[in-house]
Design a protein around this nucleic acid. Sequence first.
DNA 1: GACAGTTAAATGTAAGACAAATGAAAAATG
DNA 2: CATTTTTCATTTGTCTTACATTTAACTGTC
Lengths: 247, 247
Amino acid sequence: MKNDTDTATTRPSDLSTQIAGQIRDAIISGALIVDERLPSEAELAEQFSVSRPTVREALKRLAAQSLIRTQRGASGGAFVNRLSFEDAYPQQITTSTLLLSMNDVSFDTACEARFALERACTGLAADRRGADHLDVMRAELRRQSQTDLTDEAFCASDVTFHRALVDAAGNPVLSYHLAGPVEAMQPLMNMITFTARSRARIVALHTAIVDALDARDAEACDTHLRALETYTRQLAADVMARRAQQG
Amino acid sequence: MKNDTDTATTRPSDLSTQIAGQIRDAIISGALIVDERLPSEAELAEQFSVSRPTVREALKRLAAQSLIRTQRGASGGAFVNRLSFEDAYPQQITTSTLLLSMNDVSFDTACEARFALERACTGLAADRRGADHLDVMRAELRRQSQTDLTDEAFCASDVTFHRALVDAAGNPVLSYHLAGPVEAMQPLMNMITFTARSRARIVALHTAIVDALDARDAEACDTHLRALETYTRQLAADVMARRAQQG
DNA sequence: GACAGTTAAATGTAAGACAAATGAAAAATG
DNA sequence: CATTTTTCATTTGTCTTACATTTAACTGTC
């Protein structure tokens, strides 16, 4: 399967792009294994018949994707990087956020996707949640109840709450794939000004969710998440309507 | 030449990394708008007090993340790229695949996450699936029934089938977030040798899924997806057991 | 044999040059 | 005057060379 990262139209792209692609394919195919050292820049340059700066540009591309790391000195060089979940998180969040902000995806579409994915965790979370997860969620609940909280801090706490829910499913792959959808909603949520009443409603739903997890009741958890989605979308619709009315 | 204002507190990372970070932050924060042109490489070099190759390495990092695009010629330069879903797909798939292959995630964990996320689409897919989605799925069903198909081709068809299911939900954000989990399973599935009997069972479950979507029966769709997950994990467990037995 | 200085190898950075692409201005042509 | 062609300036793509910096290994001295 050839996974050309750029140029759908078979353009004769840059040399550095081509070289980066070849090395990337070698890593993906397993020809280069984790912690293996690549040839030195000078050797790569000779091997690909290009200059050293061109090779360096290719290596920088790979480093930007955390596929390799470089080390200076005598036994230095470029090494195939073990791509960790920690490395991949920020990249995933950045990409998800930019996708939403640059493609004017409607609030409804983004919200629908996010809650649909989050509800995918309820079954596992109800089974596996530990006391620590409940503790985190209840701590955030207390924070969300403080009336002097800014809207931004409220949203940030909301994100922490939901990530604890996701982590409660005890599946690191699931946690990774939900980081993007959950975090990318935060800028959109920040556009909503939360009244005391709407905050109270959200906290009530959050409380119901925690209690459902505490009781290991997946169905109730799912139900309350649906209610939270409905309410969130209603809030956003109200904001839109008010904004359209006022010009 | 050592006029660096930030000496002690900041990481002694590469200049190109620092510069790339600054430009990236400007894009994320909205200081640089989509399709806006960055200063020329020479101007950036002077602005950051570095050489042109260093600036170029920074720009290549950003290009690797599809944050910018470059164009040669008189009115060329580096432009802030509108990050499209098409651009983000390959990156997402590559990262997901490497995360699984490099972190020895168990088959069960990866499979659990993938099916949990896919089931998140059933409700919307049952509501919104069009005739075209059913057509694609049925076409893949016919392909999967051909006995002369290699295991790789069978798995590839499987991926196409499930992506059609996801797309049937009619939510591009959802489709994007599911591309990784679904595609990244393919290498793991390729480790399983499918007997005629196991293929028949899978095709039967796939058929049940399509029929459920055709009838707009979300619950049945969910049920059959669960059955497919159970069967897939059983198949993998059998392979593992056989492999452990034979040494 | 332990320690310190030296050396070699590799990446990081700089500077200058030329090639190639590209759009716009200038010039030639009808 | 309108149109086509030519020229030209700008910008990225690439190469060459050189030097700085970092780091591990080597080597010589005590």
